[in-house]
Computed example of a mutant assay.
Amino acid sequence: MTDTKPERVTGVGALADRFDAFLIDQFGVLRDGRGPYPLAAETLSRLKAAGKRIVILSNSGKRSIENDRRLAKLGFDPESWDWFLTSGEVAYELLKAEQGAREGKPPQRCLLISRDGDTSPIDGLMIDRVADGASADVILLAASEGDIHPLSHYEALLAPAAKRGVPCLCTNPDKIMLTADGTAFGAGRIAELYEELGGTVRWIGKPFADIYAVARDFLGATPASRICCIGDSIEHDIAGAAGAGLSSLLVTTGILADASDAERAALFAEHGAVPDFVADGFVWDEAV
């Protein structure tokens, strides 16, 4: 990390000539737990109309197509992004690739922890879903219902699996999530709990390398110097961009909406990553 301070910009319009592609976070940038941020859909469409390649890069345990549908229902134009890449999609493809090695063996018993009854992380795979950690062969942490259940609920569910050394795959590393009523602990916090209980976790999503490698592969020959990541989390979006050798824009909406400049600076130091740019939100120009 350097001691340089991020350049303040009035919006993404100021970056349109500097980059050819953008990796844009979903929650905290385009929307919160209640719905879209003002001007977010318009700004995304305008960025696409400027000829930019756009990948929405999300720590969502849901498959990509589920997020495509959800964002379109909120009023975003599906033509305004090239691909909605989720950590859930990356994990699904990894699990699918591993199925070949299990040919002839009985299906894995999986404790899937998700949200809204979502089973897309395991649909179509040779996996049987179980209801508790005591009988699971693998744990899949796709989402949190931290706004419904306390952390102790997950501790009781997971402790038997951790004691048996059952492997865990966390497909949503976010430790804080945005809900209609504010913030709650995310799947990443549940994964931390599993490690605290003695279990082993494989992390998929930002800030880890797998999801950036898949995004870079999709963008083909676009050089790193012409790709900018946009997010609201220093721990996930900004640190992830830095680890991937990409530029970044921090928007001060989302989980850090109430943070002071000093608090954000402390997080830069804690996570060893400073964004190249900072803006008040995902707008084309804040003066508009």
Rank of each mutant, 00 (worst) to 15 (best):
A159P: 02
A221Y: 01
E286V: 10
A131V: 08
I24F: 13
E103G: 01
S120W: 06
E42M: 02
I176D: 01
P167W: 03
K206H: 09
A142Y: 02
I148P: 00
E270M: 12
L44G: 09
S260K: 03
K52R: 14
D118A: 07
R226C: 04
L44H: 06
Q108I: 03
P223E: 08
D128I: 00
K163E: 14
A50F: 02
F76V: 06
N59E: 12
I204N: 09
D32F: 11
A242S: 15
L246Q: 08
G13F: 06
N59R: 07
T4C: 04
V12K: 06
S87G: 13
W284T: 05
G13L: 10
A97I: 02
A156M: 11
V9I: 15
A224V: 01
D123K: 03
P160E: 04
T252G: 00
A269N: 05
V278L: 05
E7D: 08
P78V: 07
A159R: 14
A41Q: 10
L85K: 05
A180V: 05
C229A: 15
R46T: 12
L125D: 07
S225N: 12
T252C: 13
A215Y: 07
G245C: 11
W203S: 12
A162W: 12
T4G: 04
F282S: 13
A244W: 09
M126V: 01
R102Y: 13
L219H: 10
R63E: 11
C170L: 09
V166T: 15
F84A: 07
L197N: 06
D68C: 14
E98L: 15
I148S: 01
T2S: 15
G182C: 07
R69W: 12
G188H: 12
F218R: 15
A162L: 08
F22G: 02
A259S: 14
D32L: 12
R8L: 02
I122T: 15
A287W: 00
F282Y: 09
A101D: 06
E196V: 12
A161C: 13
S152D: 05
R18Y: 06
R226I: 03
A287E: 05
I127N: 07
R46N: 10
R264W: 03
A97E: 12
V278W: 01
S114T: 14
D137M: 05
A131L: 11
K48D: 10
I148F: 01
E66L: 02
E155N: 08
I148H: 04
M1Y: 09
R34L: 03
D116F: 08
F22P: 04
F22C: 02
I230Y: 11
I54H: 12
D77C: 10
L267G: 01
I190K: 08
D132Y: 02
P173Q: 13
L94A: 11
R53T: 15
Y212K: 13
